[in-house]
Design a protein around this nucleic acid. Structure first.
Lengths: 196, 196
DNA sequence: AGTAAAAAATCGAACGTTCGTTTGAATATA
DNA sequence: TATATTCAAACGAACGTTCGATTTTTTACT
């Protein structure tokens, strides 16, 4: 088998299993059995169990690299904000790793955080702040808005989506249609609050 | 030592350690060492490691029982909403267990969820929905608001607070003063969106 | 193109460690 | 004296890693 074939296969299997039970909830024996290889392959290809877990996390956060597409669109600030909300919900809805990383299981969580997560968050915040500032400077948004705090208000709505889809599945049924209803509702309330 | 003394001591120590590293990240040897007793005490008093963990979780979610105090206050709907936001932030700020429970580590997470968490969430949502409906019926809020979705928008802001305080500590410094600024900002944006 | 040598990939077994639980004796409390 | 609590020791199971042998793939040379 080609080297990358097995690597990708192990990452794929690990992504599913770690999502369900976390780093310490899955053994390398279960992982290697599911892949049909011996347990030594995980140490060989990833340098150990945590190396495999880090690869999974890294892949999960890599999609944030494409956030800039939102800002490149030739649209008004409010449209960009809605595009961001829709983009992040579609891409990351029901993604357990957005929560897993908060409840750290790594031996050195700080290192992973500063390497992978913090740059991703910083990039998103920066771009959104720029969008808000653009809206203010064009007199579309209220002049007294604090851009950073406003970004936090937007991100709050979106973040709640991950929590609610994961935690309250039996309370509130989620679906693409329900996504749209909530996005419209969020934007509706939010729009009236920030327009000048 | 009195029975309840040791029980409370173990729960106290476990609350701190489990918060940092999760159920599988802490061994009963470390827990019992910290308490200065033998490891068999955990099985004796809690029926095992998961029994201790469940006791910790249960205690963390019990404070939601006091949510009704918010609704009893003789105040307008908008004031109650602000009171809710302040209440939950003050009580649960930086509480890692609000995230830990989402990334399940229990052998039977469904059972704990339906017994402890779901009733707590349902109660909070019900009370907030009632507050929104009250605001609508008194012509304070827009008549076309969907109460449930509006609650989700509010809860989104608050939930984000837990995430951001835990995850972005190095990005955005949090403090009681910062709490107030953000609460004011949230309420400011939100108010303009829901008033009739 | 064919072959031999080198490198990479895989395996199975074994290692030492740590885990949570159990047990029976000892101590404290009523 | 009877009951509840605590202890130290031991148990078997599971864990992640390592190691030498074996197989597969790649490279180098004719």
């Amino acid at each position: 088998m080609d080297k990358n074939d097995l690597r990708n296969k192990l990452i794929s299997i690990a992504t599913r299993l770690f999502a369900e039970r976390g780093l310490n909830g899955v053994s390398i024996r279960e992982l290697s059995n599911a892949a049909g290889v011996s347990i030594s392959m995980i140490s060989y290809h990833f340098g150990g169990k945590e190396g495999l877990y880090s690869s999974v996390l890294q892949e999960q956060f890599s999609s944030f690299e494409h956030i800039e597409e939102i800002n490149n669109a030739d649209a008004e600030a409010l449209t960009k904000i809605e595009a961001y909300i829709r983009w992040i919900i579609v891409r990351h809805r029901n993604n357990p790793y957005l929560l897993r990383f908060y409840t750290s299981e790594l031996t050195n969580p700080t290192q992973f955080f500063s390497l992978i997560v913090q740059p991703a968050i910083e990039k998103v915040i920066q771009i959104l702040v720029r969008i808000i500032e653009e809206g203010i400077s064009k007199n579309k948004f209220r002049k007294d808005l604090n851009p950073v705090d406003t970004v936090l208000a937007i991100a709050g709505m979106v973040n709640y989506y991950f929590l609610s889809t994961l935690a309250t599945q039996e309370l509130i049924s989620h679906s693409p249609e329900r996504d749209e209803v909530l996005i419209r509702h969020y934007m509706d309330i939010f729009t009236k609050g920030i327009l000048s």
